[in-house]
Amino acid sequence: MLILLFINLLPLGVMLSVSLKGEGSVLRSLADLIPKQITFAHYAEVLSSGRFARYFLNSTIVAIAVVAGNLIFAPMAAYALLRSDSKVTRIFLVLVIATMMVPKHIMMIPLFTMLYRMHLIDTYFALVLPFLVDAFNVFFVYQYLKTIPHEIEEAAFMDGASLANAFFRVVYPVLKPALAVVATNTFLINWNSFLLPFVLTSSDKVRTLPVGLAIFSQGEHSTDWSLLMAGSILAAVPTIVIWIRSQKIAQSMLASR
């Protein structure tokens, strides 16, 4: 199994090797995979070109904004769904589940035309606003909230606390494990998302890493593999690190999905 795992991770190893090799990307045999001289020049070149540093910054800004939005709004919606148990909210719950299954491609043209008319194409707003409350997160927190006894915020209401106060002071801290999942999941999906950011941006000013990589790989650098692999590594490292750190949480999320 470990040998199979090695083979499975080989493509990522190829990426790492090519990004570090000082002697170019041509492989005449498998032995060429082991760099004869290791260099970080490709990384330096990628970062100093300015474009990649910008993509990285853009991805970070967008991901943080989207994660923050989901951390605030998804629990609020989930809480409202659970506590106002009426026919209307039942319908809302069905809507939440339905939107989870809608394929993203159908949003491409309407989102583009809508944001175009609002003059928001090629701004951070285009990459953040549509993704602030993900239906999956609402549903996930909703499921988690169900396991928490109603009584915990009752006392707060008795003491005359407002809903916002009771929710953010009393309920919110209890949601921590679910919120960690929401944060990880949202970060991974957002950092890697391509289709909509590809269509909703038109300049390096706001392009995120995956989109930037695609554009970059089509220009004059299309066969500069050492550079492209260094860029790919830079795009992959944050997700791998975050995922490894949150592996346990992520798995409980996947299992409950």
Binding site: P11, P210, M229, A235
Partner: peptide, 23 residues
């Protein structure tokens, strides 16, 4: 093992596509 096999799926498909374009 579970962690190791999962790693490719957290790498962005854009980066994966570039890796395989090279491969």
């Amino acid at each position: 093992l579970r962690g190791g096999y999962f790693i490719p799926s957290v790498v962005s498909l854009a980066a994966v596509s570039l890796i395989f374009k090279y491969i």
